[in-house]
Amino acid sequence: MNIIVCIKQVPDTTEVRIDPETNTLIRSGVECIINPFDMYAIEEGIRLKEKFGGKVSVVTMGPPQAEDALREAISLGADEAVLISDRAFAGSDTWATSYTLSKAVQKAGDYDLVICGKQAIDGDTAQVGPGISAHLDIPQVTYVKKIEEVDAEKRHMRVERMTEEGYEIIESPLPCLITVVKEINEPRLPSLKGKMRAKKAEIKKWGAKDLNVDPDLIGLNGSPTKVLKIFTPQPRGKGQILEGDAKEVSEKLVELLRSEVL
């Protein structure tokens, strides 16, 4: 089973501060990590490989230092890694990013499954995974919390997809793309032998020319999203807690609603 995992390097948000002037992230001096949801995607890919054989390739699009994220993925057990990096990709929104990544997935060769984390903790859009599947024209299942069964011969899989109320069981033909939630597994730590392998591993680097992308669909020009303004929303006012037994509280509540809202 050949699996492609798409990951993103993000600033460690436990250490991130916001510049009050520009309302943007202060990135300098902040450690970069693999997006935590992508750690579950990598782990699930490695578990499927351990069960069914094949290989796990990890792909990321980002600046040259995103190579560190790929090496970490190899130390965890991924077999190959590709860095998609080019000045031409700068300023990509989720549309242009998912288009570019879909081209990379196609170039990476035969695959049965693409796995992404459900969203990145910096942008929080949850759009890139579904976007890749749309560009590749393959089925997608988002918020997967369990892979119930994979039938490599009949080329289909059955998964549990988390919803707000519970979960759905969904069958999909392969190849398909899934995005995963943290309930799916507990990511392993790297091994020493994995770290040694990662240090020596050759990371493939592909730019715009290698991917044969349409120049109008990449980077800032290929991005329909325009950021007009970034602002910090006003904090919500303090709530009010009513005390007493159910009858008293409900009476007080009705009174308050009448006087203040209605």
Partner: peptide
């Protein structure tokens, strides 16, 4: 050495995150 740093960092990570 590089390898010793790897061992130290890995043990540090295990200590912090797991133990």
């Amino acid at each position: 050495t590089e390898e010793q740093i790897m061992i130290r960092d890995l043990a540090r990570q295990i200590a912090k995150e797991k133990i």
